[in-house]
């Protein structure tokens, strides 16, 4: 059960430790169903922290986003910890960052929040398009209760939860320094129905489907920016010499971009669904990611973001990997 009092007390305690720089959590957004990340540097700010079905943001993204200024000569780098609140999926993102050494285990304090699933903002905003004031939400007996201006309304899970949560097999943090409340029951089963449906088509139909979706892409790069796994300092999208990707917005270049993005997440994507949430033109990006997730699971018996001691998929090999496609 979510216990906000416990969450705030724990946050106060953690942020007042000497070796913690700041804490990243969630707070109410400025309007509607939106939630903002909350960067907390002192215990006084703890009262704004929340955890509700609206906390979709994956805060692991901010671990790698922090600006790294050059260290003046003679000074020691600031090695204090960053505390971060994580749901099950976010904790896998942190684990995967640790595997890739994108984040240092000594410099992160993980606060685990077992989660019963977050809402799909697009689904709710379609139901309630005109809600402007900030909405509160909570889980109750397997249902999602929204405190709307007209009064409370409750919805069954299937109606409002994000797709990734309905098939989520890791609602509890896989790695945490403290877990705030009891672990929740695992309800999701992954069957890859949407991926299999596409696989069943022939290649012409599949291309027609993707062409239709990908031609909408406006190359805002939101999907890359929000992704907790996309933190390369030198990204192929921005390289000019050699030019890996052209910036023109047309089907050809967009496809190359989407292929590169999906491929770079092969064996790394932990299915937090952030790319699809932020996409302004509703490209089903998670289908690409889930397809690769499925293949990685089937071909290499590997799931990313579970074991901090594992090796990255594409930086390791087994001599008996599948090679039925090789001539």
């Amino acid at each position: 059960m979510v216990d906000l009092e416990k969450l705030r007390n724990a946050a106060k305690e953690i942020v007042s430790q000497d070796d913690v720089k700041y804490l990243i959590g969630w707070r109410d957004g400025t309007f509607g169903f939106r939630i903002s990340p909350h960067f907390m540097e002192s215990p006084e700010e703890a009262d704004k922290l929340i955890f509700s079905p609206l906390c979709t943001n994956n805060l692991a993204t901010y671990l790698t986003m922090a600006e790294k200024l050059p260290i003046p000569r003679g000074e020691e780098p600031d090695r204090r910890k960053v505390a971060v609140m994580v749901k099950g999926c976010d904790s896998r993102a942190v684990v995967q960052q640790l595997v890739e050494q994108g984040t240092n285990r000594e410099e992160v304090y993980i606060i685990g929040c077992p989660c019963e699933g977050v809402v799909d903002i697009k689904k709710i905003e379609k139901k309630f398009p005109d809600v402007l004031e900030s909405v509160e939400a909570r889980w109750e007996n397997g249902q999602i209760v929204l405190k709307l201006p007209g009064g409370e309304q409750s919805f069954p899970r299937e109606e409002v939860l994000a797709q990734k949560c309905l098939t989520c097999r890791y609602p509890n943090p896989v790695l945490a320094d403290t877990v705030l409340w009891d672990e929740v029951e695992v309800l999701g089963v992954e069957e890859y129905e949407d991926v299999k449906e596409l696989e069943g088509m022939d290649s012409k139909e599949r291309w027609a489907y993707w062409q239709d979706k990908i031609s909408n892409c406006i190359r805002c790069y939101s999907c890359r920016n929000v992704c907790p796994m996309c933190y390369c300092e030198d990204c192929v999208l921005e390289r000019l010499n050699p030019t890996w990707m052209f910036r023109s917005v047309n089907v050809a270049e967009n496809t190359a971009y989407q292929l590169a993005r999906a491929f770079h997440l092969a064996g790394r994507c932990i299915e937090c669904g952030e790319c699809e949430r932020v996409c302004p033109v509703d490209i089903p990006l998670m289908k690409l990611n889930r397809k690769l997730y499925k293949e990685v699971q089937e071909d290499f018996q590997f799931e990313p973001g579970l074991d901090p001691e594992s090796k990255p998929l594409q930086a390791s090999y087994r001599p008996d990997d599948k090679e039925d496609f090789i001539l």
């Binding site: 290649s203 292929l259 491929f263 092969a266 690409l288 690769l292 290499f300 998929l313």
Partner: peptide, 21 residues
């Protein structure tokens, strides 16, 4: 060995997007 892994994945991805394998 590394190439084999990468190309196995890229092949699946290209096939999924509709490029003939």
């Amino acid at each position: 060995y590394y190439a084999r892994r990468r190309f196995a994945l890229m092949r699946e991805l290209l096939e999924f997007i509709g490029v003939e394998p």
